[in-house]
Design a protein around this nucleic acid. Structure first.
Lengths: 256, 256
DNA sequence: TAGATTGTTAATCGATTAACAATC
DNA sequence: TAGATTGTTAATCGATTAACAATC
């Protein structure tokens, strides 16, 4: 994958676009090294870590906004989250906002920029499949509405649950899913079924037309390339916690 | 923090310990460059990513064990999780197990090694503080017992909830926490209170003697250095999902 | 034996951090 | 003005990947 014929890169040097770069570009050095990459994919993409950090900025910004703050510096955002200020500056650059030296960023503008960047500016509707313990907890937790997500319907296979109401949401039969998705133009599904049923259920969700699955099961799903899945695995966090605790107790034991 | 007086490192060269290294060492080059670091902290530590991946291996290994498989190759573990085989080999090396070329790893031995490494070989008891939606879902979800965690008691501030039973667990007043912790020698707490109460509650948990807090609130907790906190933030995963979905739809639009 | 797999070193890649001019 | 903060490049660090001898 080298030297795919490029179209005349020797055209007028890009010096005219020098006013205010909203999105960071690669360094000139790397452009020289890979001149065939001067086209659209040239834009630097945010790291996964950056995307993961943005919601925490958002949360703090909303609190600041509620407190009546008009501006906030990257330095402040950084210290609250125990991050280096330069990390915050780089992360925020991806959202397209520009700050003012000595002043910082306009809170309202920054909130809007992060929301837009993450696609949380319009409320995204979602269905939830699998109304067990975790499923009903998520139904009852309306905090996701701060993150652009609104669960509007839920589905289950269990005849005992179908047509009952859970946390203000009527449980539908899983058989109803395709029709419901098609009518409602919903693209996102939350999967909270038991592990055994995970892959099968995911397939039905994909067939119904969903394009994203937020996967709370312990199963790594196999889905077509145009479908995005995100696995939420609490065991990961627990592993980190356990490991750190072991480490701390060892360190303390050594120090004694 | 350099050149802390070390005790005679010139003693008999470590060539005698050459049979089977269970834990990877740094390369000779780096030892030569930092000769003052020849002591215990010399051991290479696993990356956070490695620790996060171990539970997923564990889960698959248990399924294989239940299916009667005696051996599994790193290659298989890798392909199931869409990882490069060398990642799996390196991760497993940290647990101290040794595989057999052409055969792979003994499933039972590997399960035990990962559990030991993560401190999941004995069931760790924990308390849960804050019996709201999420709290009661976690109480009802017994899957953590596969990960060495057993929630044995729960606490809340709400007089309406105190002394009721939720998912087989009696809700105690938060005031009872210090006495309970001291009597039971529990070190781990799960925090599922509303954001406003998070920091205050965490402080009470620390005062009671807890050494680890699994934090399900949206608040970054401030705790003493000897206390470990692990923040579980669903918004992170949702951000990644939203971002990926935007990207996929853009890519598809371009390709059309 | 042949060939798949392990364990390990070296190279690559990408994210974080350092450094600093520009700005208000 | 002075000095805090932004935006950006270059250096560093650490994790992933490539490569390969050793092994069964």
């Amino acid at each position: 994958m080298k030297n795919k014929n490029k179209k005349t890169v020797m055209s007028p040097a890009p010096s005219s676009v020098q006013k205010r770069k909203l999105i960071p570009k690669k360094t000139i050095t790397s452009i020289e090294k890979n001149p065939e990459k001067l086209e659209s994919e040239e834009v630097v993409k945010p790291s996964l870590s950056c995307v993961r950090r943005l919601p925490s900025y958002l949360q703090l910004l909303r609190a600041l906004q509620a407190d009546g703050h008009e501006y906030v510096s990257g330095t402040v955002l950084a210290s609250v989250h125990h991050l280096a200020p330069v990390i915050v500056r780089k992360d925020l650059a991806f959202t397209g906002v520009t700050g003012t030296p000595r002043i910082g960023f306009q809170v309202t503008e920054l909130i809007a920029a992060i929301e837009r960047f993450l696609g949380w500016d319009n409320q995204n509707k979602a269905v939830l499949v699998g109304v067990g313990n975790l499923g009903s907890a998520l139904l009852g937790y309306h905090g996701f509405e701060n993150f652009g997500l609104q669960i509007v319907a839920c589905f289950d296979n269990d005849p005992m649950k179908i047509d009952t109401w859970i946390r203000g949401c009527k449980v539908h039969s899983l058989d109803q899913l395709p029709r419901f998705i098609r009518r409602s133009h919903i693209v996102l599904g939350v999967l909270t079924v038991p592990a055994e049923a995970a892959q099968k259920t995911a397939e039905r969700m994909v067939e119904s037309g969903l394009l994203g699955i937020w996967n709370f099961t312990s199963v790594k799903l196999a889905v077509p390339a145009n479908v995005v899945t995100q696995k939420e695995d609490l065991a990961e966090g627990l592993a980190v916690l356990s490991h750190r605790m072991q480490h701390v107790s060892k360190t303390l034991a050594i120090q004694q």
